[in-house]
Nucleic acid binder design. Sequence first.
DNA 1: CAAAGCATGTAAATAGTTACATGATTTA
DNA 2: TAAATCATGTAACTATTTACATGCTTTG
Lengths: 192, 192
Amino acid sequence: MRISTTGYLILGMLRLGVQTGYDIKRATDLSTIFFWSTSHAQIYPALKDLEEKALVAGRSEPRGKRPRRVYELTDAGEEALDDWLRRPEPATFEVRDPAALKLFFSDAIDRDDALAHVRAMRRRSERHLEEIRRESEPGAEALHDQGTRFPLHVLKIGLAVHQAIADRCAELERELEEEGRGGRRKARATRP
Amino acid sequence: MRISTTGYLILGMLRLGVQTGYDIKRATDLSTIFFWSTSHAQIYPALKDLEEKALVAGRSEPRGKRPRRVYELTDAGEEALDDWLRRPEPATFEVRDPAALKLFFSDAIDRDDALAHVRAMRRRSERHLEEIRRESEPGAEALHDQGTRFPLHVLKIGLAVHQAIADRCAELERELEEEGRGGRRKARATRP
DNA sequence: CAAAGCATGTAAATAGTTACATGATTTA
DNA sequence: TAAATCATGTAACTATTTACATGCTTTG
């Protein structure tokens, strides 16, 4: 009985008290999006699948005439989640960053065009930092104070990643700007 | 005529002088793997597709009896690559890190099990750092000295990312270890 | 002579996105 | 009353992985 990573994401969210497909989507957008994203087109079929496997139990709980399906973990679901949580994870870490790929090949284009890519990349990470702080951190801190600590711990890793990217891009921008103004000598002087 | 990101990766590698599907795979494993990975099962069909679109030209150039197909950019291919390189990129940045997801839900398991996940994560990034330095940096530096600078620039962003993860994990490990020994008061004291 | 590396491909399955489709309720 | 938000689903397409399949050449 194979459970996908998205399946475990759902089991985990249900244990944290999130109840519907819609809310799971919202919760992931706020909390796991920086290391695991999903769409509602994945969540609804996955919930069905987990229900067939008897790991979650769903019941209809409409709000007025608007249909709504509320899920909870079964004992088997809780066990499956715990097993997964305790199992060491194969060390995969995948990044898909088309902007970085573009930058990688940017020796073929004008310095100014390349510089624009670096700036866009820095701004992207700065935007992410701001977003995490504004949208995600308050919730993570509230959870932390109630004894659920790891969401905040993981969030801080995300912040560190984007801070590192923003910093490195800022440095690269300075390097490229200096090269543009002063030529080779100055650019070299900053290296050691 | 839509070209996939993997398609542009191939066009870019061809311009850097890489000639065969096999070598493109090897080159990506050494250089783009930390922000864009592929498998040979994607590369060979993509090369075919690019050839149909007349963006690359392939010819058979066997080594002895071992078949081998050598590709080069056509003028149209060069143009398509340049257009893409100059086009600003939609700011997508996706990470798939199941270990981080596990850590996110780790309030439900023993502190020692959670600590093991943090350690595994730190070691993973340390391994990546070492690998990049050993396997990728020398080549990127050689390219840099020949005037192809951006591969090294991008590599440094990758190093910064994994350094940030390793650092943050190390700090979290200390926090969790201290909590384990001394209880709440000490752990809180390190926070501000 | 065995193992590692060179070299190319395809098939099947899984994962994931985007678009389609619908409609209720709340808020400005 | 229009827009935003709540709420759930499916279909078609694209992307990606894993396994299958083959065979040559170099190196230890």
